[in-house]
């Protein structure tokens, strides 16, 4: 609390049971299609979770598995080269025939890029706990 960091939260319903969403979330072939080209990935606490986000550019993400509970939780240290480290957490919950996925990107450092300018439309209600949290539902 009070460390000047934010959390971004996105909530998404996916039309497949948790076992399938988990596979899409964690299998290297799938990761390369939805997230980025994976390097070393080992789904165990402390294991690497390396990503290459674009060819040639300095856009490697040094990831490490902080917590893993198959078909439920995947939490990663998220350290893009040249940026402040943060934490990314995926949490799956069965929801009828499908799955609710909650993504939290935590410990985002405000100093990284306060320069971006846009309009403030959302209400203060969106600012929760020590965080500015924004949910989108679909």
């Amino acid at each position: 609390m009070g460390d000047g960091r934010a959390t971004l939260r996105l909530t998404r319903y996916l039309d497949a049971p948790v076992i399938e969403v988990w596979a899409a979330l964690t299998e290297p072939d799938s990761i390369s299609r939805w997230l980025a080209r994976p390097g070393a990935v080992e789904l165990a606490e402390g294991g690497p979770f390396e990503l290459h986000t674009a060819a040639g550019a300095a856009t490697r993400i040094h990831g490490r598995v902080r917590a893993v509970e198959p078909e439920r939780v995947l939490e990663l240290d998220w350290h893009p080269v040249g940026q402040e480290p943060s934490v990314v957490r995926f949490e799956l919950t069965p929801a009828g025939p499908g799955t609710t996925l909650v993504l939290d990107h935590r410990r985002l450092d405000e100093r990284v890029c306060m320069a971006y300018a846009r309009t403030w439309e959302r209400r203060l209600d969106d600012l929760e706990a020590s965080v500015a949290a924004v949910e989108t539902r679909r």
Partner: peptide
């Protein structure tokens, strides 16, 4: 707050 939101928008 506008700045904060713009930053989170990324």
């Amino acid at each position: 707050l506008e700045e904060l939101d713009a930053w989170l928008e990324r």
